[in-house]
Structures are given as C-alpha cells and as structure tokens.
C-alpha cells in the first residue's frame, strides 16, 4: 500500500514536471517568434483618434461645402482645393496612433521583462510596412490623378492586407480584424458615396471594439 502511494506520487510529480516543461516549450516558441507586446488599449486609442479625425474631416467638409457630407462625391469635388487639409488630418491621426501604440507596447514589454526592440518587432514592422507603404503610395497616385473617391476604400483594403500579413508575426487575432477591414474596404469601394462613414467604422469603431476584446483577453489577466 505504502509503495503504491509512493509510486503514484512519484508519477504525479513527474507528470506535473513534464506538463510544466511542455508549457515552457510552448511559451518559449511563442515568445521567440512572435511579437507579443501589443496592448489592447492601443486599439482603443487608435480608434478614438480615427473617429476624431473623421469628425474633423466631416466638419470641415460641411463648412466649406455648405452641404451635408453624407454625399461623399461632394468630397471629390471640393476636396480639390482642400485635399491637403484631409491629408494632414490623416497624417496626424496616423502619427498619434503609431506613437501611442509604440509607447504602450514598450510599457508592456518592460513590465514583462522583455526587450521591446527585438527581432520579432523588426520582423513585424517590416511585414506590416510592405503592404502599408504600397497602399500609401497608391493613394498618393490616386490624389495626383484626382480619383479621390477611391482613397477611403483603398486605405481600408491595404490596411486590412497589412494586418492579415503581419498576423503571422504577432498575436493571431489581428488576422480577423484584417479580414473585416478588407470587407469594409470592398463595401466602401462599391458605395463610394459613403466613404467617410466606412472609414470611421473601419478605423474607428472596429479598432475600439477589437482593442477592448484584446485587452480583456490578454492584458487583464496579466495584472
């Protein structure tokens, strides 16, 4: 009887040890190949900045136009003169978003004793930038050719592709956000009159919802 108890406790500790080893392996594989310091709160901030930017564009549009801005074609007509206002608006939103996301990621990495700027971060950045820069340049070309109605859908589609592409190098959940952005972009291209609305949904609303979801899934538990 005693030997049976002894044996089973021996097996128990052995099993627990092996289980811990397996969990260790999984953690190390994840940590060494994916950038895991993304913070869910970043999504919320990015969403808020995007909504603010969209609101500013909407205000400017209705002021200069004297018309309600749900007619996105109007943007194409007036925006000719004002295009730089919208460009600066978009760039400010972009800079604020990237800045806050980076800060929050650095903070999370420090908290978990990780190095923020490691090979996984570099790989993520590179793979995100390839579709994003392509999309950005494509939009500049659209502006030069005056295809302004296509800018909102183009940004959404390329951003979605960037997310799908970089999901291999960071938290996998980004993939579905990317797919949603691509769908919205295609819808926006089909209904060009509502570009600003789709833009606000894709960059604002979706980011906030996703950010909250990610925060609950990953960051709340860490605390």
């Amino acid at each position: 009887m005693f030997s049976f108890v002894l044996q089973s406790t021996l097996i128990m500790t052995n099993t627990e040890e092996q289980l811990a080893a397996l969990q260790d392996i999984r953690k190390i594989m994840e940590r060494s190949s994916r950038f895991i310091s993304l913070n869910g709160l970043s999504g919320v901030f990015v969403g808020l900045f995007a909504l603010a930017g969209a609101a500013l564009a909407y205000l400017h549009l209705s002021q200069t136009n004297g018309r309600v801005a749900d007619d996105y074609d109007a943007v194409a007509l007036v925006a000719d003169k004002d295009i730089w206002f919208y460009c600066i608006d978009a760039i400010v939103v972009l800079v604020l978003s990237v800045g806050v996301s980076t800060l929050l990621s650095i903070r999370k990495a420090n908290k978990e004793g990780l190095n923020f700027w490691d090979p996984t971060a570099k790989r993520l950045l590179l793979n995100m930038l390839i579709p994003l820069v392509t999309g950005g340049l494509f939009c500049l070309i659209l502006i030069l050719h005056n295809f302004l109605t296509l800018i909102a859908p183009t940004l959404l589609i390329f951003y979605g592709l960037a997310l799908v592409n970089s999901s291999k190098y960071t938290l996998e959940d980004i993939r579905y956000l990317g797919l949603l952005e691509i769908c919205l972009g295609l819808l926006a291209a089909y209904f060009p009159a509502n570009g600003l609305v789709f833009w606000a949904i894709g960059f604002g609303f979706l980011h906030i919802v996703y950010g909250i979801g990610m925060y609950i899934k990953y960051d709340k538990k860490v605390k």
């Binding site: 392996i25 190390i28 594989m29 060494s32 190095n115 090979p119």
Partner: peptide, 19 residues
C-alpha cells in the same frame, strides 16, 4: 524550442530569451 521556430539565432538573443 527556440531553434524549431527560428531559422538562425545568435548567442545574445538566445541568452536574452532564456535568461
């Protein structure tokens, strides 16, 4: 584990990951 998911890893990176 690290070498299974990364092609090539240098000494300092390995040290940092494993502490």
């Amino acid at each position: 584990s690290i070498l299974m998911v990364n092609d090539e890893v240098d000494f300092s990176r390995m040290k940092e990951l494993l502490q």
